[in-house]
């Protein structure tokens, strides 16, 4: 269930249980595709879903893991890694993706465009 909302407003996209731990889903937020990841039981991150290397909207389908200190997703197309906290691409920094803020409330996952 998605609520209509203005830019920069929190929007609930799905139930917490809709995201299997250590995987991602894609949500349609205001006409934009957002990849939301659940790492372990309780950590959630969100980044833009379009892979800048292939232009395919697939980052939500990548494998989640850690590299050193970073928590990352590997794009399923050419396997570059994106830092889930900063959106940075570890292999080529010029290909960073936008991040979204995530919060949990009432058993639901809410996202908001990151104002940073």
């Amino acid at each position: 269930m998605s609520e209509l909302g203005m830019n920069n407003e929190w929007m609930a996209v799905c139930g917490i249980g809709d995201i299997v731990p250590d995987t991602g889903v894609c949500a349609l937020v205001d006409g934009e595709q957002v990849a939301i990841f659940r790492v372990g039981e309780g950590d959630f991150y969100a980044i833009a879903n379009v892979d800048p290397h292939s232009q395919a909207a697939v980052l939500s389908r990548g494998l989640v893991g850690s590299l050193g200190e970073s928590i990352v997703v590997a794009s399923p197309i050419y396997k570059q890694h994106f830092d889930l906290r900063s959106g940075e691409c570890l292999e080529s920094p010029e290909h960073a993706v936008r991040t979204w803020e995530v919060r949990l409330q009432d058993d639901r996952v809410w996202v908001r465009r990151d104002s940073r």
Binding site: V20, D22, T23, S54, V58, R61, L63, P76, I77
Partner: peptide, 22 residues
């Protein structure tokens, strides 16, 4: 199955081969 799903490469995760456009 639940314990294994998140380990699979994208192709195995969807039991199909991903193409360049997704």
């Amino acid at each position: 199955q639940k314990e294994h799903a998140s380990l699979q490469d994208s192709n195995d995760y969807f039991l199909a081969n991903i193409q360049k456009d997704g």
